[in-house]
Amino acid sequence: MSDFPPIPRAPRRQPVFNLPGCVLAIAALLVLVHMVREWVLSAEQDIDVLTLFAFIPVRYHLPEFGFFSETGLGPRLWTPVTYGLLHGDWAHLGINLIWLAAFGTPLGRRFGAVRFALFYAVTAAGGAAAHYITYPEGMVPLIGASGAVSGIMAGAVRFTFAPGGPLSGQSRGGSSAHQPAHTLRQGLGDRRVLMFVILWMGLNLLFGLGLDMPGMEGVQVAWQAHLGGFMAGFLLFGLFDPIPRAAYRP
């Protein structure tokens, strides 16, 4: 018999990207779309992409106006979602990817791929709706994942501060991303949630007053789409959440 202790097993190698597959898939799609637009398409072809897939409010009022005349009904149906796959430049894309990774990770683990993708689409549409309400005859194409990312942020806020959630400071065992979420009443009654919502709303109102983000000076920020996506995510979270609610105790 050997007196030597058993050789310890090497620790498991940690994955390079510790993100849910649904978040990685959407991030990869956003990067791929931008790569094709930047490095493959000509300027004329990219204009066609914007015409077909960016959200342009005036399209719903003047469908036969100018270069909108060739697009038909289709873009009026899908552009409230597909605009969230397009970006102005790499900085715009990079900022959205950072926020997507930060807030999409706990939400993706909770929702799973199908619910997460549907939530992304619905909150993107919420952002487009808010933009349309404020600019019903706007001709400037709306692009960017910010509306959907804002909705994902709002969805994460609904459960990350709840008891046992990732930011609650109250461990209950198991995955913190699968603890029961706040109800709307509980969420708005939680000072941390309320402060987060107020700060987010206030920051976007500053964008509306002309505040520039570092590295994006002079870029027009569609702050209404941010607010619309956030409100859609905060209010509609319960329709997508697969985790049963805890009993409410005021």
Rank of each mutant, 00 (worst) to 15 (best):
A27T: 06
F237E: 04
H92P: 01
I98K: 02
A145N: 02
G218T: 05
P180F: 09
A128I: 03
P180R: 02
W78H: 14
A125F: 02
G208A: 13
L107N: 02
A128Y: 01
I133Y: 10
M201S: 08
P214V: 08
I198A: 15
A154S: 04
L19P: 06
A121C: 14
P11F: 07
L184I: 15
V16T: 14
G218I: 05
S150P: 11
D190S: 06
I243H: 13
W99C: 12
E38N: 12
P11L: 11
S175R: 14
I143R: 00
V33Q: 09
F237L: 02
V221H: 01
I152Y: 00
F207V: 10
L167C: 07
G84I: 01
L52I: 02
Q186N: 04
R115E: 08
G74S: 11
A91V: 12
L50W: 10
L86D: 07
P136F: 03
W200A: 02
R12M: 08
L19I: 07
A129T: 13
I143W: 03
G202R: 08
A246I: 12
P6C: 04
A156W: 13
F234Y: 15
A125S: 07
F196H: 03
G112I: 07
A43D: 14
V140M: 12
F55M: 04
P20K: 06
G174R: 08
R245M: 14
G104T: 06
I98Y: 12
G138R: 09
L235E: 01
L205R: 12
G173N: 07
V31Y: 04
R9G: 11
A121N: 01
T105E: 11
F17W: 15
L52A: 13
G104V: 06
G169P: 02
V49W: 13
A129F: 10
L206H: 10
F17Q: 06
G21T: 12
S176H: 08
G202A: 15
A27V: 05
W223G: 00
A154R: 01
Y132W: 15
A247P: 04
F4W: 07
L205C: 14
V40T: 05
T134R: 09
L209A: 15
F159E: 03
L30H: 06
D241L: 03
V31R: 08
E64M: 13
H34W: 15
M195D: 06
P20H: 03
